[in-house]
């Protein structure tokens, strides 16, 4: 981010406080981030029509959404600049929610009378 550094270097006036410079730097971060987010959204929209392995597409969607998710919380929501405790508090909720959703998804099977899909990997007497 040459631009940012240049700007900081060329700040000649000593009466500009540090936090103003910090906020200026954030402007560029925010713009770059939003461009990336939009680009990812565009990729997501296109990728679902591409005729390749659907599991690959699915995995890509998961990864891309996670990247978007983390981008927003890390920069837009200031976790990058805040104290670690904020991140920890949020992660407790996020991890528990993710775990709960996953466990629920595994507990319900597509076939109402059949075993959960994951169990088809196991010997039938375990269903």
């Amino acid at each position: 981010m040459a631009t940012t550094r240049d700007m900081a270097d060329t700040q000649q006036k000593s009466d500009v406080p540090d936090y103003i410079i910090e906020e200026h730097k954030k402007y560029f971060t925010f713009f770059n981030l939003s461009i990336a987010l939009i680009a990812i959204t565009g990729i997501e929209l296109v990728i679902i029509y591409v005729p390749i392995n659907k599991w690959f597409v699915f995995s890509s969607l998961v990864v891309l959404s996670t990247v978007k998710f983390l981008g927003v919380i890390w920069w837009f929501m200031h976790l990058r600049w805040d104290r670690a405790l904020c991140t920890i508090v949020f992660l407790i909720g996020l991890i528990l929610a993710t775990g709960t959703v996953t466990a629920l998804m595994l507990l319900f099977s597509r076939d109402p009378d059949g075993p959960p899909e994951i169990m088809t990997l196991l010997p039938p007497f375990l269903w």
């Binding site: 407790i92 909720g93 528990l96 709960t100 629920l104």
Partner: peptide
């Protein structure tokens, strides 16, 4: 609150996905 809201939406999204899956 946002940590708590994760569980709110987690529950709602699981409901939707479970029925989509079933």
């Amino acid at each position: 609150f946002l940590a708590s809201d994760c569980m709110f939406f987690g529950t709602l999204i699981s409901t939707h996905l479970i029925y989509r899956k079933v």
